[in-house]
Nucleic acid binder design. Sequence first.
DNA 1: CAGATAAATTCACATATATGTACATTTTCC
DNA 2: GGAAAATGTACATATATGTGAATTTATCTG
Lengths: 247, 247
Amino acid sequence: MIVRQAANVLEIMEFFAQTRKPATLAEIADHFGWPRSSTFNLLATLSEKGYLYEPRPRAGFYPTPRWLAMARMISEVEPLPPWTHTLIADLSAETGETASIVAPAGVMAVFIDVVESQAAIRYFATIGHRVPIHATASGRALLLQYSQEERDSVYRKIEFKQYGPSTPISIEAVEIELRNSIARGYCQSFADYSRDLAGAAIPLPIGDRRLSVVVAGPEFRIGPKVPEVAALIARTVDRLRPKTTAA
Amino acid sequence: MIVRQAANVLEIMEFFAQTRKPATLAEIADHFGWPRSSTFNLLATLSEKGYLYEPRPRAGFYPTPRWLAMARMISEVEPLPPWTHTLIADLSAETGETASIVAPAGVMAVFIDVVESQAAIRYFATIGHRVPIHATASGRALLLQYSQEERDSVYRKIEFKQYGPSTPISIEAVEIELRNSIARGYCQSFADYSRDLAGAAIPLPIGDRRLSVVVAGPEFRIGPKVPEVAALIARTVDRLRPKTTAA
DNA sequence: CAGATAAATTCACATATATGTACATTTTCC
DNA sequence: GGAAAATGTACATATATGTGAATTTATCTG
């Protein structure tokens, strides 16, 4: 079950992150199609808690810097080492595609850092983006780091859906693909989950955290180059990862 | 009316900002005294939206860097000029008290930047902290920047309460205090709102934004020094504010 | 400066939603 | 290695909550 008002808080904040300017109650209500009265209650709650203020009289609400202060607190803990961002920045620059660092979240994989392609046709992904762990290159690069028991536990919760022609729709299919990935030396996906999308990924354990790096883009562009992209990822990780802290 | 689940989202995030480590469903539910099932729904919603993930298997949830990305987006807009932070840092260092930048939010004043005193007994305030605009030095320094009509409009919404012995409990009392502040050259408060708390503030218009600077601390320590603290604030603003962009 | 128009706020009620209970799964401890 | 404890998940139901309509307040326009 989705908690509506919790989701609404996130939507409001995303709204501000997009528009980047103060908005009045009416503007917000109209934008989301929410009743004025409900919007009023939500804004009042956020203001009450010190997360919204009125920068100028009658110019509407805007988030206080408290969001930033809180987010900084949260993200200071075990931040990703700086070289991981360099990694995806370099990969994106060299390949012209979108590169990301990915982490597990139950049966899903979450993008925790992203450098987007600059191409007109690109894989559009943002931090926080989620994809099925079993049906994506990045996700399978995470599964490779699990023990058999841990994988089984995840499998039990997966709802196998035919997202695309090549989606693995059984535990065996996933396990086979994992074995192939080991043999191949990297994980790949050709529209397993998203139409027209292909990508290459490898595991990226950091400390005791299980992460992965992925480069993905439109199938017609990246498809034929997947092996060399995978090799490039491996080389770039080797180059950037500090030798002393290597897992 | 307060929107409970909206407030709960904020509480959860504040919880993570404090503990700075992943937490399981059970830990969160117990900490807040929430039912497991409700906590489950909330965490599911936040995860679904890409704001929570599971860094390590079975180690619980933690916010994704998406919070930081979003907060950065929001705060990039008209950030406070860097000298304002220097301002309160210097003031706090010189006086040993807590110094803040404050902005209006209806009948309240919000702390949008804070440098805390290092003293054992100190004014404890954080970014997002809210105080009544009419019953605090910082708030009155904001009101001084309003036109008479704008002030009247604010007054109509104020619920006058006797927070302390010297709280102004009528429009006239507030207006008189404002006139006194102008004559005096700064705003002051002696436990008008919080017990044992005294402070000095002056308006700090930046562009078309109406802000104020305040230095506040325990009455016994800062009380006798309020005039010199006020003079120090004025001098420090003069020193740090760029001449070219002065309002 | 009225009169009109739009926005913000309040409130009572129907309905969407949080939760108690039951079940499944995982982990801990002996 | 097996039983007990803890944790995570699903669902029906009573109730807390969101909302439409009415009221008040602010803003625009001629």
